[in-house]
Design a protein around this nucleic acid. Structure first.
Lengths: 297, 297
DNA sequence: CCATACCTCTGACTTTAGTCAGAGAATTGC
DNA sequence: GCAATTCTCTGACTAAAGTCAGAGGTATGG
């Protein structure tokens, strides 16, 4: 059986067993579309555009669904203070009660899947589900080239700065570092990648492409919530390919000794530790990797 | 995170990533309901009632969908020769062509899930999916008490006979065995269980409950296609419970040396090999297990 | 051979789901 | 300050999904 066959088989079993039940459980008292919306609004509330985006629905349709939930007294819709074009939906007390019902049903569905199995089988099912969940999530992450000044990119860079400030023994002051302005990481002198999961930025990585010098990786960061999905490795592969396309045959980077997981990643991706090639004040280790220029076919 | 939380998380990721795409891919040219129907008819054809049952749809609705597929020249509907009330749906050549499109899309969906991952991740995803598939399938199997004369039960018993005839060194003649008539395995002197997957019988097990004597397991069989799902163990657990409820404190069984997997199962379920307690001509091993009467609370 | 049950179909519906083209407010870029 | 853009909403639709109550053949058990 090929990999594709195995995935197909999985799809079939799962859409039958989970998918159908899921909609069925969810939509007992009201149309599934409304229930799904209620579910996505959640206890913390959401912007209308977020809901539209997330569920992939027409704006008019969402508006109508919200109106229906509003007349049933389950939600309130109010303009967002910062930007009064955007409207925020929140559950009322009645809405929260209804949400609790959905929540309980979701539990019931989960239990009904486990119930016929014995202890050992349950443990194995849960472990396998966690693995599938992790890997499907990993496969859902997209990598896009983005201007470093865009809000998504800025969010990542701020998170990067905050994290290294916390973790470096000496703290971190971007102005003292060798790349004070991430703006250098835009074409033609560089590339900046942002990883997104369901539209939310969850990681970034920059590549400096100085003329006639080795390419250099800077400002790589992965959101703690998405670590363990192989995102770092994916960034490295992607940047290596772009550097190669640009005609570079060496890729290098420097890093701080506090970032042990990253150092392990560099080793396992084929980077070799080398002598310092710059005087970055925050660096303790310098790495280099020979890369092959892609053949044009 | 509890097991239920893990399952819920899985449900969410999977219905989002697989479920939605599945319907989307499937229903590009025609309504999903029609596409689903076409998909279920498959190259071999199906009875209308089977389709209705499987998809859980109203009989009038299915009829209408079939009419629509028929006017599009994709299927033919004809009475079944054995029972002319039942009608059988078959794909025409055009229908088969359309089916092939769905088939290709199903492949594409599977590929799109694997595509963003690296080799190692793909292998792990496929392995985890296979495990989830297996265990969800196992959880879908139902065990019902059935009269041994019912068609489902007879199907299983015939399969049992055919298999042991094949596997026993000496062949197998039911008339020479100690239980020539499975009819004894009905209340109040016994129980007969049939396991079903999507309504199809995939296994059976009988329990003799002689007054004042140990309960005895007979005629346990699992369809080769569903082996490895822990069905044998589930039968044993279920029958043990029923024997205990009946007030028995010993459960026993005999078996042939050719059935090595079964013998391993009995050992691992807490059965002890004992001296022959009957003169079943086809038995080489006799097993016994003390069971505890359930407390009434 | 007759009552009963079974299976599928038709007609007449309702409800959901979803689309499309603007209108009207609020914000942003120049 | 004005044009362009963004965001949400309404009206006016269409298509799909699904339900319900029979009608009319076909088998089955006595």
């Amino acid at each position: 059986m090929t990999q594709v066959d195995a995935v197909r088989r999985f799809n079939r079993t799962v859409t039958e067993r989970v998918g159908v039940l899921h909609d069925h459980y969810l939509g007992l008292d009201r149309p599934v579309a409304e229930a799904r919306l209620l579910w996505e609004i959640g206890v913390r509330g959401r912007d209308v555009r977020w809901l539209r985006e997330r569920l992939g629905l027409d704006s008019g349709y969402v508006s109508r669904l919200l109106r229906s939930l509003e007349t049933d007294g389950l939600v309130t819709v109010e303009p967002q203070p910062q930007d009064r074009r955007v409207r925020t939906v929140r559950l009322t007390d009645a809405g929260r009660a209804e949400f609790a019902v959905l929540d309980r049903r979701s539990d019931e569905l989960a239990s009904s899947l486990l119930e016929p199995l014995n202890t050992d089988q349950r443990a194995r099912l849960v472990a396998a589900m966690a693995e599938v969940d992790r890997l499907l999530t990993a496969a859902t992450v997209t990598l896009d080239v983005v201007d470093p000044d865009r809000p998504d990119a800025q969010h990542c860079l701020r998170s990067y700065t905050a994290e290294v400030r916390e973790r470096f023994e000496t703290g971190f002051d971007p102005a003292r570092s060798l790349l004070p302005d991430a703006g250098e990481l835009r074409p033609p002198h560089g590339v900046f990648l942002v990883a997104r999961l369901h539209g939310e930025p969850v990681g970034c990585a920059g590549l400096k492409l100085p003329a006639g010098a080795p390419a250099e990786i800077k400002r790589m960061w992965v959101d703690p919530r998405t670590r363990g999905l192989g995102l770092g490795r994916r960034f490295l592969t992607e940047l290596e390919e772009r550097a190669a396309q640009h005609g570079c045959d060496v890729l290098r980077l420097d890093t701080n000794k506090a970032l042990t997981a990253a150092i392990g990643l560099y080793h396992s991706c084929g980077f070799q530790e080398v002598a310092a090639f710059n005087d970055e004040p925050y660096a303790h280790h310098w790495f280099e990797k020979r890369i092959s220029t892609p053949r044009s076919d």
